[in-house]
């Protein structure tokens, strides 16, 4: 019995080895069975749109793509990536780095990418980041900016007190209140925690003057819709948050890299903003349809 079991196990391993090598071969030659890729996403619509864009681009280039969208937060999908249950997830360079390495201090785009490459386990690989980014951004109303002559975060020191709204973790994050104090030397901050990730309640508080400054993700449609002034960040308080596909190392080859990099290169922050507006705005376009329209317009393949 044991011998039979052992033989079966060995045979299974050999077969598995055969099948994976043969599929890699056919993937390279592009003739027979398609390489299959499982594309996942985090549980918010922008990430889902990005997953659809990368997934559809691969499908257009002969990959067999299946989707596991809306998985959840990093704590849920990073283990799935590591186990190979999901092969591709669009990430944001600074956030995934901070998740993998708690002590990360890299801030510029190149530093973040280098630190990310070092922090990723061998089973995962980060491809070339896009110039499209979705980071924290501090916003004020146009009237408040004009009245106080604000254009950069450093200008906030002109005010006697600054009421600032953000998620509660902003209070303790190194690139939150602490960073504003140590990097920009702001000592006039009064913090209000609003737990909606720069959503409607935060926006309402900013517009009705309950707070002066609101932390809203840079690709949120409400920034454009309300003509908010995003304060520039000359001292790079917020780490670079470029969109970067994280892929199973076992699936990475020249063809996959070239397809995904082509998409990343074409994608801009303005595109993200427009896509988010389409999906979250009044038209309520489905993420997959918005992705399809963007790919058609970009005419990459």
């Amino acid at each position: 019995m044991i011998a039979v079991g052992a033989i079966a196990a060995v045979t299974a391993v050999l077969l598995a080895g055969c099948s994976s090598s043969s599929s890699t071969l056919s993937g390279n030659s592009g003739t027979k069975a398609k390489t299959s890729i499982v594309v996942g996403s985090a549980n918010f619509s922008e990430n889902e749109i990005l997953a659809d864009i990368y997934g559809q681009a691969l499908a257009a280039n002969g990959y067999h793509v299946s989707y596991k969208l809306n998985i959840g937060a990093r704590a849920a999908y990073v283990p799935a990536l590591e186990k190979g249950e999901v092969n591709l997830i669009p990430e944001y360079s600074g956030s995934i780095l901070a998740y993998l390495s708690k002590s990360a201090t890299a801030s510029s785009s190149a530093d973040v990418k280098a630190a990310l490459d070092a922090a990723l386990p061998a089973s995962l690989k980060a491809l070339t980041p896009s110039s499209a980014a979705d980071s924290d951004s501090l916003n004020v109303t146009p009237a408040f900016a004009a009245k106080n002559g604000l254009s950069s975060i450093a200008d906030l020191s002109k005010l006697s007190t600054v009421k600032i709204a953000a998620n509660p973790e902003f209070q303790t994050r190194p690139d939150g209140i602490k960073g504003l104090q140590s990097i920009y030397g702001l000592t006039n901050l009064k913090f209000t925690a609003i737990s909606d990730g720069g959503g409607p309640a935060t926006l309402k508080a900013l517009l009705d003057g309950t707070v002066d400054v609101a932390d809203i993700y840079s690709t949120t449609p409400s920034i454009l819709a309300n003509k908010l002034v995003t304060l520039s960040d000359p001292k790079s308080l917020f780490a670079s948050q470029e969109v970067v596909p994280i892929v199973s190392s076992s699936k990475v080859d020249a063809k996959l890299t070239s397809v995904l990099n082509k998409v990343s290169a074409a994608l801009t922050t303005q595109d993200l903003l427009a896509l988010n507006t389409e999906v979250s705005g009044d038209s309520k376009t489905a993420p997959a349809d918005a992705a399809k329209a963007w790919l058609a317009k970009a005419a990459l393949f």
Binding site: A165, Q171, A193, S195, D196
Partner: peptide, 21 residues
């Protein structure tokens, strides 16, 4: 009420969760 930035004893629960404290 602390979900929307108002002071209450809930502040510590809601902030603590978000800050993993």
């Amino acid at each position: 009420a602390s979900v929307f930035g108002l002071q209450s004893l809930g502040t510590f629960i809601i902030d603590g969760l978000a800050q993993a404290d």
